[in-house]
Amino acid sequence: MAFAWKAAGITYNRYLAVASRAVRRSLKEDKRLQAERRGEMDLRFAKWESGRQGENKSLASANEAAMAEAASGGQQ
């Protein structure tokens, strides 16, 4: 099966996250406020090289960069 989002380098995990975000935003006000808390994610990581901690990076923006690279890398 060919999916349009795959050509843009988007992973299945990201696809599900985007789809679920749209579902949460469509809920009635009271349910939406509760549900939207489940969509929040803020993870940071750092690479350790020769005993030193590298720069702190956001996982979300690193994922975005990786997906952009996968798309321009010409993966079908």
């Binding site: 380098g9 990201r14 798309a71």
Partner: peptide, 19 residues
């Protein structure tokens, strides 16, 4: 926008139109 932004908007459209 970027290719990713457009692809994500299309995913949302698929969900929202089905809904």
């Amino acid at each position: 926008g970027s290719e990713q932004d457009k692809a994500e908007a299309n995913i949302e459209l698929e969900v929202l139109e089905s809904l």
